[in-house]
């Protein structure tokens, strides 16, 4: 028996919105410690790694490990049927063909159940090597989303250059070029508005806008985003999900031909 309950479906709704652009199908691996998803997009350029810890749920029970293949499009449609304040419960038997989503309104007067067929998927798990990153930048997630959106108008790629002074995003295309520099905040009263740079060595890397603009769909999950970069390795773009877990996106850089 697997059962996981969240007091408010808003978190799960946001998680689905944050992955649906990149993934069509994904395996949800459920164990005593929580729910994990690790899946690449079809082009094998980016990877989504989602971790929801069991202690972050209001109720969590997982008698035996389960790997449930889910269609992300269908799951997104089902989550859109829930109000943000509804309680959501995921339920499955031990060798499931289906998963049930149960939405209960706050006043308990409305109870909705949606059953979704599971799909068989080949499990291809990637081992992500431990990496010491040359630059780790924490910045407001809305600012990052804004910069990705704005610079996407100029080119199909954004170059991120990080040094002790700050972080610079730039894009160039047929119509011109653009760059946005953010300095490290000296002393921000509000943690959420801070730009913090932890730099060992300066880095300069180029990434496709299309993927960055998919990652920033996670913006509603967290006020801050963490970007970890080293030369010639994938970018890690991380959003904390409240007290329950995190979503990490990995993106292969664009390299010189």
């Amino acid at each position: 028996m697997f059962e996981a309950r969240l007091a408010q479906s808003a978190i799960l709704k946001k998680v689905l919105e944050a992955v649906k652009d990149l993934l069509t199908e994904a395996t949800f691996e459920c164990s005593d410690s929580g729910i994990q998803v690790q899946a690449m997009d079809n082009a094998h350029v980016s990877l989504v790694s989602l971790n929801l810890r069991s202690d972050g749920f209001d109720k969590y029970r997982c008698d035996r490990n389960l790997s449930m293949g889910m269609n992300i499009g269908t799951m997104t449609k089902i989550l859109r049927c829930a109000s943000s304040e509804d309680t959501v419960t995921l339920r499955a038997v031990d060798s499931p063909d289906n998963i049930i989503f149960i939405f209960e309104s706050q006043n308990k007067e409305k109870l909705a159940e949606y059953e979704m067929k599971l799909i068989n998927m080949d499990l291809e798990h990637l081992g992500i090597p431990e990496t010491m990153y040359s630059c780790v930048v924490k910045m407001p997630s809305q600012e990052f989303a804004r910069i990705c959106r704005d610079l996407s108008q100029f080119g199909e790629a954004i170059t991120i250059a990080c040094s002790k002074e700050g972080i610079k995003f730039s894009a160039a295309g047929d119509y011109g070029n653009a760059n946005v520099k953010l300095a490290q905040t000296a002393d921000s009263d509000k943690e959420e508005e801070a730009v913090l740079i932890d730099m060992q060595e300066p880095v300069k890397l180029t990434f496709a806008c299309r993927y960055l603009n998919s990652f920033v769909k996670a913006t509603p999950l967290c006020a801050q985003v963490k970007l970890s970069m080293s030369s010639d390795v994938p970018l890690v773009c991380e959003y904390q999900i409240g007290e329950i877990g995190h979503i990490r996106y990995y993106l292969a850089p664009k390299i010189d031909d």
Partner: peptide, 14 residues
């Protein structure tokens, strides 16, 4: 000219 690199080059399939 830049080309898009692939993730599987960096990560090991386990």
């Amino acid at each position: 000219l830049t080309i898009q690199d692939n993730l599987t080059k960096y990560f090991i399939v386990v």
